[in-house]
Amino acid sequence: MAAELRRLRAAAGFTREEVTESTGINGATLYRIEKARARPQKRTLLALLQVYGASETQRIDLLAVQSGSHDQGWLRPYHSELPEEYTAYIGFESEARTVRNYESLFIPGLAQTEAYARAVIKGVLPTASHTEVEQRVQARIERQELLTKNGPLQLWAIMDEAAIRRMVGGRDVMLTQVRRLLTLMEEPHITLQVIPFGTGAHAGMTGNFVHMDFPDAQDPELVYLDTPAGDLFLEAEAEIRRYKSMFEHLQAVALGPSDTVGLLASVVAESD
């Protein structure tokens, strides 16, 4: 819905400021609606569709999305307690066709064991309560159902060797985690690569990112950044091209899948 509203506004030739002047909708509210960070009230949606000159078919389709947004299958009761940007990310991920994820220090979330996820969350959120930690762990494990459903999510994840060498949760937790990666690599829809320390400096050292595309060609591709200053969703074509190019560079410098299996197996052997 957010993507379609942005498209309709662009097609009508309006800036956000002009829409605010025409409808009285707060500019910050409009921004949040277009970034999928807030669900528009029905009257707000109707006002936007009228200004944009939406067709009857578009009105019917978007009103159906708006009225059904409370019942999204990915939304669990406790998700209301999670950060808004994270629940938005879960929603996008649940609808994605392909996820390409680069991680410099963490095992990718879709590949984490429960014990590793708990240790990571406790480590990066030292002030979080037990309930908050467990809610995040549960959300992370539930997300992994995307990899086992019919027509599973296609996952291509690249991580720096630091992610598999750091003793998150201790030796036993990491040993189980690395074995989990080896198991995942047996699946045809999952590709994992590791960038070894010997590679030296590389494009991913600036930080983690996730690139998603979707089954519907009308849905724009998306890049997600989890930063200390807040979560960002990027959809501008120039940004998408930049991160796609970065991922291609990382694919080129990382070990191929078979060599990655060899490295992971050696880590397990060292720990046994």
Score class of each variant (00 low, 15 high):
residue 44 T to Q: 11
residue 21 E to H: 09
residue 132 E to H: 09
residue 27 G to R: 14
residue 121 I to T: 09
residue 107 I to E: 06
residue 207 G to R: 04
residue 199 T to A: 11
residue 96 A to N: 07
residue 182 L to A: 06
residue 133 V to P: 06
residue 148 T to A: 13
residue 262 G to R: 05
residue 171 R to L: 14
residue 239 E to L: 05
residue 94 S to M: 08
residue 207 G to Y: 03
residue 66 Q to G: 01
residue 189 H to F: 10
residue 197 F to R: 12
residue 119 A to C: 07
residue 109 G to H: 00
residue 76 R to N: 03
residue 86 Y to A: 08
residue 195 I to K: 12
residue 183 T to G: 12
residue 104 S to H: 05
residue 100 R to E: 10
residue 210 V to G: 04
residue 186 E to G: 13
residue 105 L to S: 08
residue 163 A to Q: 08
residue 220 P to Y: 09
residue 157 A to E: 04
residue 37 R to L: 15
residue 179 R to F: 00
residue 95 E to Q: 14
residue 7 R to D: 04
residue 45 L to A: 08
residue 72 Q to Y: 00
residue 61 D to V: 14
residue 63 L to S: 01
residue 79 H to W: 08
residue 106 F to P: 05
residue 263 L to R: 12
residue 85 E to Y: 12
residue 134 E to P: 01
residue 86 Y to E: 03
residue 36 A to V: 10
residue 150 N to M: 08
residue 6 R to H: 08
residue 63 L to A: 00
residue 221 E to M: 06
residue 187 E to V: 05
residue 263 L to S: 03
residue 122 K to Q: 15
residue 102 Y to T: 05
residue 189 H to W: 10
residue 225 L to I: 12
residue 56 E to D: 15
residue 48 L to F: 01
residue 261 V to P: 01
residue 267 V to R: 11
residue 216 D to H: 14
residue 95 E to D: 14
residue 89 Y to W: 15
residue 37 R to D: 02
residue 16 R to H: 02
residue 111 A to E: 11
residue 222 L to H: 13
residue 222 L to G: 10
residue 88 A to S: 15
residue 191 T to S: 10
residue 212 M to V: 09
residue 130 H to P: 02
residue 27 G to L: 15
residue 187 E to S: 11
residue 110 L to F: 12
residue 270 E to G: 15
residue 235 E to W: 01
residue 15 T to V: 11
residue 39 R to I: 10
residue 99 V to D: 07
residue 264 L to K: 03
residue 70 H to N: 01
residue 126 P to I: 01
residue 48 L to H: 06
residue 152 P to R: 05
residue 159 M to N: 04
residue 110 L to P: 04
residue 182 L to M: 06
residue 76 R to Y: 06
residue 253 V to K: 03
residue 55 S to K: 09
residue 207 G to H: 01
residue 211 H to Y: 14
residue 167 M to G: 06
residue 41 Q to N: 07
residue 258 S to D: 12
residue 160 D to M: 04
residue 262 G to W: 00
residue 96 A to T: 13
residue 135 Q to V: 02
residue 45 L to W: 09
residue 178 V to L: 05
residue 49 L to W: 09
residue 27 G to F: 12
residue 111 A to F: 13
residue 224 Y to G: 03
residue 97 R to Q: 14
residue 5 L to V: 12
residue 142 E to A: 10
residue 200 G to A: 08
residue 267 V to M: 10
residue 219 D to A: 11
residue 221 E to S: 15
residue 139 A to R: 03
residue 16 R to K: 13
residue 207 G to F: 07
residue 1 M to T: 10
residue 175 L to E: 12
